[in-house]
């Protein structure tokens, strides 16, 4: 439901007793509707700095809550609960528990950059969304999202060979996320594709499954990138107050 149509008081905080007597007066049913008072005491004052330390989050402090990002958002149009403006607000207020209510959809940002285009304060909300989903995963609030699995599969191929090969990406991604490769629509796509393709092209595409396309003289560049990635991982974990990755709990020090 769009945020402006939601009741300010959550249903779970409204209490109605079917049978209740107070000071000898029967206030059963509607008359005993109470609003549970809500006091926020668990502000997380570090969360804004933590988001700002992750790639994409650096400008979050600039936000003045105009709402242009949510207004232009591609995903918000499909799912009104996807609300970048609101999440930026919660992060800046330190309302972690409130933010965690939406933890399972934040990764769905499609990076269309409409928000960054319209933002009058250069917050770069697209980057903030990526930093947020990264933060949720690093803190252990959510498992790795399908999107992160895809990004990792993709990036690892580039770091290893300098290039990607699409069928390898598809297979690697389905393997990582435990999905069957034989998806109905994928089969239909392949069926329609091979109807017209010349044998030669099919052969080259098939061959790419066995002989990985790679950039010549890539190994040194690949190694330099891998080294940099490890360095950044350490930096990120430190900024979020996490121990090294081998620490299974991933808990704060």
């Amino acid at each position: 439901m769009p945020i402006h149509e939601q009741n300010l008081i959550r249903p779970e905080n409204i209490i109605t007793n079917d049978e209740l007597e107070i000071d000898g007066i029967d206030v059963s049913g509607h008359w005993s509707t109470f609003i549970e008072s809500r006091v926020v005491t668990d502000y997380n004052e570090d969360i804004e700095d933590e988001i700002a330390a992750l790639p994409g989050g650096a400008n979050i402090h600039r936000c003045w809550q105009c709402g242009s990002c949510t207004n232009s958002c591609t995903v918000n149009e499909i799912n009104p609960d996807f609300n970048p403006r609101f999440w930026i607000y919660l992060v800046r207020m330190g309302m972690e528990q409130e933010l965690l209510r939406d933890k399972d959809i934040i990764w769905q940002c499609v990076s269309c950059n409409k928000c960054t285009y319209v933002c009058p304060r250069d917050v770069q909300p697209e980057g903030v969304m990526k930093a947020l989903s990264h933060w949720l995963e690093l803190k252990g609030h959510t498992p790795k999202s399908p999107s992160m699995h895809f990004d990792e599969e993709f990036s690892e191929q580039i770091f290893a060979t300098g290039k990607i090969e699409e069928s390898r990406i598809i297979r690697g991604f389905f393997r990582r996320t435990g999905q069957p490769l034989m998806q109905d629509w994928l089969l239909e796509l392949v069926k329609r594709l091979i109807r017209h393709l010349p044998l030669k092209l099919l052969f080259t595409m098939g061959l790419a499954n066995f002989v990985r396309p790679r950039t010549r003289n890539w190994s040194k560049a690949g190694a330099a990138i891998e080294e940099y990635v490890l360095e950044r991982d350490l930096f990120k974990r430190k900024a979020l107050g996490l121990g090294p990755e081998s620490d299974d709990q991933g808990a704060a020090k």
Binding site: P55, G56, G127, K130, D151, E152, F154, S155, Y228, V229
Partner: peptide
């Protein structure tokens, strides 16, 4: 569109 989510500078 993927590597930037690992690290934009790469």
């Amino acid at each position: 569109m993927e590597v930037k989510n690992i690290d934009p500078k790469i």
